[in-house]
């Protein structure tokens, strides 16, 4: 429990230190959904297969891009904790990408 609280506090402090990117990402996501819902009907189910493929592509880019962003590279992934960290971050970013494009693809496919 203590370690979980510590982790949450670290994430909160990370947000305070670098608020722009997570804020922009959150606002963008909310704006897309608000806009898309206003444009209903949306083809949520039909748009999901393409959305997750986009998410997968984003995750692959993130898998290589995040290490580069922090002055490292995928060649420095040396053992399990390294792979777990980078893979989980790539999955998280990929999931965000999929969620972001889902309603947009749904609008295009509503007809």
């Amino acid at each position: 429990m203590t370690e979980l609280l510590l982790g949450l506090n670290i994430l909160y402090e990370w947000f305070l230190l670098s608020p722009v990117l997570p804020t922009v990402m959150a606002v963008l996501l909310i704006a897309v959904y608000v806009w898309a819902v206003a444009k209903k009907p949306l083809n949520w189910k039909g748009s999901w297969p393409l959305s997750w493929k986009v998410g997968l592509l984003v995750a692959i880019i993130a898998f290589f891009g995040v290490p580069w962003w922090v002055d490292s590279s995928v060649t420095e992934l040396n053992y399990l904790p390294d792979w777990l960290l980078n893979t989980s971050m790539a999955i998280g970013i990929g999931a965000y990408g999929a969620l972001l494009v889902w309603p947009l693809i749904g609008i295009r496919r509503k007809a």
């Binding site: 922090v70 490292s72 420095e76 992934l77 960290l85």
Partner: peptide, 13 residues
């Protein structure tokens, strides 16, 4: 052990 995770922690967290 040489580690990307340790680097990430130092750089970001």
């Amino acid at each position: 052990k040489d580690s990307y995770l340790a680097w990430f922690l130092e750089d970001e967290l």
